[in-house]
Simulated scan of single mutants.
Amino acid sequence: MLYIGNHTSSSKGYLAMGKQMLANGGNTFAFFTRNPRGGKAKEINPQDVQAFLQLEQENHFGKLVAHAPYVMNCCAAKENLREFARETMADDLKRLELTPGNYYNFHPGSHVGQGAETGIAKIAEILNEVLTKEQSTTVLLETMSGKGSEVGRNFQELRQIIDQVELKEKLGVCLDTCHVWDGGYDIVSDLDGVFTEFDQIIGLDRLKAIHLNDSMNGLGSHKDRHARLGEGEIGLEALVRVINHPATKGVPFILETPNDDEGWAREIALLRKEYEEKQG
């Protein structure tokens, strides 16, 4: 089965997000746990959650991909910013237990001149403080495009974070097609090779979600500018190969393309058609 949806607004609650995704033709979705620029999270309505869980079960949704706020920087140089990251992640993981067994995706952070090695150690330190044996949520490190001082610009840096975390079984990876392309991984001409490298360095068992986006920029540009499917440098044909690749079977695909619900519905319908044709 193809699990696909888009990044949607959480402002109206879980049930509204689920209904909107069904209207878009999707069966999974991503959402920010709070304002992407930070701040206090909204109170969760338990009745809303229960109604959504029933809708989710009836419609065979795939795993949901909650997203941490962009401003959460686990490897910041300033300790007050790291404390915000620590508290935010701990609070988000606690709240996500109301919808158990899903994913929590975050950008590893920017080392802001401290160096990648220091950044990696600081990210792992916070994960070691926050992750618990009891949690049902898997925390996903996102692949990054390598702009500025971002950590996670290649598979090796993500592997180094994982290696320093005690509860490794609570970690996975979200691969962003725009980010890896901008980071220098040629998913157009050598998709098999990219997945082979991912498997050798990280392990395909840790590939838990994919942000499916085209890119406005060329291979290795380190820019991170998303484009609608088929309107960028990656192209629709290559992205269709991603959804049909054996390495991505059963993985939720999240569209973060610059669209509205009508546009996402078109993209979801297009991908479903392409997927079903390839699957026979």
Rank of each mutant, 00 (worst) to 15 (best):
Y3G: 01
T196I: 04
I210A: 00
E142S: 11
F61K: 01
V180I: 15
G113Q: 11
T137H: 03
A247S: 15
P46M: 15
F61V: 00
L55I: 06
I120Q: 03
G220R: 03
L207V: 09
L158I: 08
V180W: 02
V251H: 05
G109Y: 06
G113A: 08
F195Q: 00
L64Y: 07
I234E: 13
Q164S: 03
E169M: 04
F29A: 08
F84H: 03
Q156M: 06
K12T: 04
R228F: 05
G18R: 05
H179I: 08
H179Q: 07
S11Q: 08
E277D: 03
N213Q: 04
T28K: 10
V71Y: 11
L271G: 03
G280C: 04
D48F: 15
K19N: 14
L219T: 01
P100G: 05
A30D: 09
L212R: 05
E97Q: 15
K63P: 01
E125I: 02
G232I: 06
T137W: 02
V194H: 03
N80M: 03
E262L: 10
G39T: 14
L158H: 04
L229T: 06
L255F: 14
E276L: 12
N244W: 12
I161R: 05
E134L: 06
G218S: 11
A16L: 07
K170N: 09
W264P: 00
C174Y: 04
Q20W: 11
V165P: 01
N45Y: 14
E43R: 14
G250L: 09
H226V: 12
Q50I: 12
E97V: 06
E262K: 09
E277Y: 09
Q279H: 10
A16K: 14
G101F: 04
V151M: 08
G25H: 12
R159S: 13
N259C: 11
E267P: 07
F84E: 14
G113H: 10
L2C: 01
V194Y: 06
L140N: 04
Q114L: 13
A41Y: 08
R34I: 01
Q160C: 00
H211Q: 09
K19C: 03
L207M: 05
I268S: 09
Y14I: 00
G62L: 08
R206E: 09
G250E: 10
